[in-house]
Simulated scan of single mutants.
Amino acid sequence: MFGALSLVVPSGYSIGALLLLLGGLALPLLRPGLSLSRQDWLVMLVMALYASIFMLMAWLNGDGSREFDRPSRFLLAIPALLLIMGYPPRLSVMWSGFALGAIGAGSWAIWQKLFMGISRASGYTHVIQFGNLSVLLGILCLAGMGWAALQPHRKSWLLLLALGAAMGMIGSLFSGSRGGWVGFPLILFVLYRSYGQVWSTKWKAAAVLAIVVGGGTVFALPQTGVQERVFQGVDDISRYVSGETQNTSLGARFEMWKGASYLIANKPLFGWGENGYKDGIATLAERGAVNPVILQYSHAHNDFIDTFAKRGLVGLTVLLLVYLVPMKLFGEYSRHADLEVRSVAVAGTLLSVAYIDFGLTQTFLGHNSGAMMYAFLLAILWGIHSRHRKQLA
């Protein structure tokens, strides 16, 4: 349910997460033998550290209880992680959930774009969040290909996951969320590094051909809006560099990053907090240091710059830990001989890689959908991966 409903009903990502949380809270009664490893404790530590540091700094800066909401998702995901470790689901359930979620998101995007006449498909959430989470579900489907290759109904599973991958990408393309496209070469590199040695030359050539033909077709068809978004981005950069205007999508981002850099230089260690950031940007705009157009935004449209400005070097370090520690631990098994183990490890690695990409052009964890999806996907994937590690040991 967490994967399948995440983008096709309002706050769909909350439904499966809530059930996982409730199951996790029942663990003291169920008392499964978890046998937590050092790696398990490390993953839970970075999740708890992220939540605790961000909530503590919000309290110290007087940012209000609203800023406790998103970080708290990482604490709430820990009981879910323990539940998955104690009672891991069948992988067929997990992968089919991701595939159905991606197919649903892509279908919803097609309906909004081509039949409802909406210029950028957004589902039930923010347009950038929808597009990036849609492609994330598609990416997870690609990671599951190794598992699918081992199943008795191999062709059916491969077809389902391939369809999920394609529809997840369509959801992103029809949303026009360009930030999710920037890191796609890195996603392909991780997939190739993980699965390249098990693909025949014929399948590698077919994959390259499909990417080239599919990408070219999507770019060429004006109905997709991809070509327009790409040309618009190039034009935004050109007009900003020439000094013609800063009041464009990318131009405003560059101004936000410039303003945040001034604030970082003044308070590099602990940052300005949410309210201090807004006041600081307003002061810079009054002085003419940044374009006043950015006053409509409460964040820097970059997870790393925004965190550095608001939470300082301390907050940035914690943010990097919550991405890089799981990435390293999953990555240790991303080329494992057992394709079932490898598929989950690749999915976990790609989760961090994708979020780092998304965070370059959007404060992705600053939205409830972004925080919820990362925290609970990490709980699900690590819970299963932890069981795999123990079985192998």
Results as ranks from 00 to 15, higher is better:
residue 131 G to T: 04
residue 131 G to V: 03
residue 131 G to D: 04
residue 132 N to D: 14
residue 132 N to W: 06
residue 132 N to M: 14
residue 133 L to C: 04
residue 133 L to N: 15
residue 134 S to K: 02
residue 135 V to K: 05
residue 135 V to Q: 14
residue 137 L to S: 03
residue 138 G to I: 04
residue 139 I to K: 01
residue 139 I to G: 01
residue 140 L to P: 02
residue 140 L to G: 00
residue 140 L to H: 03
residue 140 L to C: 02
residue 141 C to H: 00
residue 142 L to Y: 00
residue 142 L to Q: 00
residue 142 L to R: 00
residue 142 L to T: 00
residue 143 A to P: 01
residue 143 A to V: 01
residue 143 A to S: 11
residue 144 G to W: 00
residue 144 G to N: 00
residue 145 M to W: 09
residue 145 M to Y: 05
residue 145 M to P: 02
residue 145 M to C: 11
residue 147 W to I: 02
residue 147 W to P: 01
residue 147 W to S: 01
residue 148 A to D: 01
residue 148 A to P: 00
residue 149 A to P: 02
residue 150 L to F: 04
residue 150 L to W: 06
residue 151 Q to W: 05
residue 152 P to S: 09
residue 152 P to N: 06
residue 152 P to T: 05
residue 152 P to F: 08
residue 153 H to L: 12
residue 154 R to K: 13
residue 154 R to I: 01
residue 154 R to S: 02
residue 154 R to W: 00
residue 155 K to W: 03
residue 155 K to Q: 10
residue 158 L to H: 02
residue 158 L to K: 04
residue 158 L to T: 07
residue 159 L to A: 14
residue 159 L to P: 00
residue 160 L to W: 11
residue 160 L to Q: 12
residue 161 L to K: 02
residue 163 L to F: 10
residue 163 L to N: 10
residue 163 L to K: 10
residue 165 A to E: 03
residue 166 A to F: 15
residue 166 A to N: 06
residue 166 A to K: 10
residue 167 M to W: 11
residue 168 G to P: 08
residue 169 M to C: 12
residue 169 M to K: 05
residue 169 M to Y: 15
residue 170 I to G: 09
residue 171 G to E: 06
residue 171 G to C: 04
residue 171 G to R: 06
residue 171 G to L: 07
residue 172 S to R: 13
residue 172 S to G: 13
residue 172 S to Y: 11
residue 173 L to Y: 04
residue 173 L to A: 12
residue 173 L to C: 08
residue 174 F to L: 15
residue 175 S to Y: 12
residue 175 S to V: 12
residue 176 G to Y: 04
residue 179 G to D: 04
residue 180 G to L: 07
residue 180 G to E: 07
residue 181 W to R: 12
residue 182 V to P: 05
residue 182 V to Q: 04
residue 182 V to E: 04
residue 182 V to T: 11
residue 182 V to N: 04
residue 183 G to L: 08
residue 185 P to D: 10
residue 185 P to M: 11
residue 185 P to V: 11
residue 186 L to Q: 08
residue 187 I to R: 03
residue 187 I to W: 15
residue 187 I to F: 15
residue 188 L to N: 05
residue 188 L to T: 08
residue 190 V to F: 14
residue 190 V to D: 12
residue 191 L to S: 08
residue 191 L to W: 05
residue 192 Y to T: 11
residue 192 Y to G: 09
residue 193 R to D: 14
residue 193 R to H: 14
residue 193 R to A: 15
residue 194 S to F: 08
residue 195 Y to V: 10
residue 195 Y to N: 08
residue 195 Y to M: 11
residue 195 Y to A: 09
residue 198 V to I: 14
residue 198 V to A: 06
residue 198 V to K: 12
residue 198 V to M: 11
residue 199 W to T: 05
residue 199 W to E: 06
residue 199 W to Y: 11
residue 199 W to V: 07
residue 200 S to I: 03
residue 200 S to N: 02
residue 201 T to Q: 11
residue 201 T to R: 14
residue 202 K to Q: 10
residue 203 W to T: 10
residue 204 K to G: 07
residue 204 K to A: 05
